[in-house]
Amino acid sequence: MSVSPLAKDDAPVRTKPGYALLDDPRVLGWGSIVLVLVVWELAARLFNVSALYLPRPSQIVVALVTLFGSGGLAYDLGVTLWRIFAGFAIALVSGTLLGLWIATSFRARAVADMFIAALYPLPKITLIPLLIIWLGTGGPFMLTISFLGAIFPIVINTVLGVSQCDPGLVLAARDLGAKPQQIMRRVLLPSAIPSIFAGVRLGLGVSIILVVAAEMVVGKAGLGARLYLAGQILETEQVFAILIVLAMLGIIVTKVQDAVDAALGNWRVD
């Protein structure tokens, strides 16, 4: 991560090892999580809080191990991941192509502007009832809901990225003999990649939310369905365990995106 804008450039370099440890963002990040868990565990034991209301971290770990061991949670995780990423992948490919087309065609843009203005601000979660009427509650429904979460940010950011391409680069490519198709593939698309990736970040986040929410409403399998079921039968340890799985998923997705972002540094013009 980057240096805080408030960091002092002229701050003296600390040499005591104890302090140096506290200057490492990873130590601070993980350390604070461990601290919260320890305080939670101790406080729950000290005040004898009911596990029905707030289970202790140690009980949650036991529930987590049991769920993965004999409870089949790995299967539910797999189902949820498949729904999220299959719909998202379709949105990524079609959204990028659609965005390229909208950005380079005057007519496509005029038409798409109206549809995007109407549909983008609509909370996609409100489409769940309609989609159930049309598609039922099976695989096609789940793919569609994930697709709908990701497609708008990806299209909008692709259009933005392509529109902001330096016209000098297009001229240079034409000068070197590029045909319109080659300009699209070799200049407009790569120059839009940082922007497309910003859309991917937004879109994947919405896809995750929508799939889990849809599973809570109608799912028979998947993390959302398990979460809802555990809540209904007051298995609070299981609720927490599934929330932890979702949080870990969030951390992994965010860290992978950070890594991709860093690798895209060469794409950026300065």
Binding site: L176, S191, N266
Partner: peptide, 14 residues
């Protein structure tokens, strides 16, 4: 056959 050298360089940054 013609090739141009541009004031703004116009190199592909990626």
């Amino acid at each position: 056959a013609m090739s141009t050298v541009w004031q703004a360089f116009n190199l592909f940054p990626w």
